[in-house]
Amino acid sequence: MAANWSAESIQDLSGATIVVTGANSGLGYEATKAFAREGGHVIMACRSEKRGRTAAESIREDLPSASLSVHECDLADLDSVRAFAREFEATYPSLHVLCNNAGVMAIPRTETEQGFETQFGVNHLGHFALTGLLLDRLRETGGETRVVTQSSAVHERGRIDFSDLQGETQYDPWNAYAQSKLANLLFAYELDRRLSESEGEIESAACHPGYAATDLQRRGPEMRGSRLRLWAMGAMNALVAQDAETGALPLLYAATHPEIEGGEYVGPGGFMGMRGAPEIQRSSERSYDREDAARLWELSEELTGVDYRL
């Protein structure tokens, strides 16, 4: 465990271009702020451009020299993801780190613009498509580049239900969330394996924040209109969770630490993996299932229409 590692441990990022999805709040906001503090240029990929600009203004109040750009990228709409990728390629000549951070958690069943179950569609398919569309820019950037995908400890209860992937027959919000977070890891590890076979300069790693207090926990109870669950979640956040700034450390560690290797998984090293300084960990046995990973990969290419050409 990197017991003394903090955001201040990040080396100089001057000249680095970094994309963070969900950068306007929670872990994405704190990661964006940390990257910018060390001189990186951060592209804030946000579902709402308006909220993204408000977040950027807030960061600049503390860091007047922060180099930030805000672009709309709605992971629930693959047309928006493609538009973001086209705009990025037309505007930015390099990409050093892609942080697949945004997500939704334990919400009632809804569907994305393309008809996917929202948690699977946003948390996995949206990031799968985005990574594939930006892969050429990662390739073309000199030196080592990284893709870091945010998972969750909840992935440990997850299973990929290939017979009902979109939860059309049976839907449980937490099972769907766990499935999407397991899919994040299967993707991150499979991406690293495929990159290792084809080219050596792009590393794919994964991370999880432990239990961090963010607005992510509020969405499900709010959508259900459950005041009791909303109160209980707020109480748990206050009593147990670490703050979002600390929760962002595994993502920052995976994105910037010089000794990180592809296929590694970073999470808090403290109490039950819920809090503390980042360390290299091992995820669930299911997350290393190569057969499931390959099957999910082929299906994801089919569903998104994004061919990685690896």
Rank of each mutant, 00 (worst) to 15 (best):
T145V: 09
S80Y: 02
D74E: 14
G103C: 10
F88G: 06
L134C: 14
H155C: 10
A76I: 02
R146V: 09
C73T: 08
L78P: 04
V147K: 07
Q150D: 00
P108D: 14
V104P: 00
G143E: 09
C99R: 04
R137V: 08
Y92N: 05
D79E: 13
R86I: 10
Q150K: 01
C73P: 06
Y92L: 04
T118W: 00
T110K: 15
A129T: 03
G158L: 08
T141V: 08
V81I: 08
R137M: 01
C99H: 06
H124P: 03
D77S: 08
L98V: 11
F88L: 12
T110L: 12
Q150C: 08
E117Y: 03
A102T: 12
V81R: 00
L138N: 10
L138R: 09
E113N: 11
A85V: 06
H96R: 13
S94L: 05
H124K: 00
R109I: 11
G158D: 08
H155S: 09
A153R: 15
G132L: 03
S151V: 05
R137L: 01
H124I: 01
N123L: 00
E144P: 10
F88C: 06
G158T: 11
V148N: 03
P93I: 04
E89L: 11
E113C: 15
G132F: 01
A90N: 08
E140L: 12
A153M: 14
A129I: 00
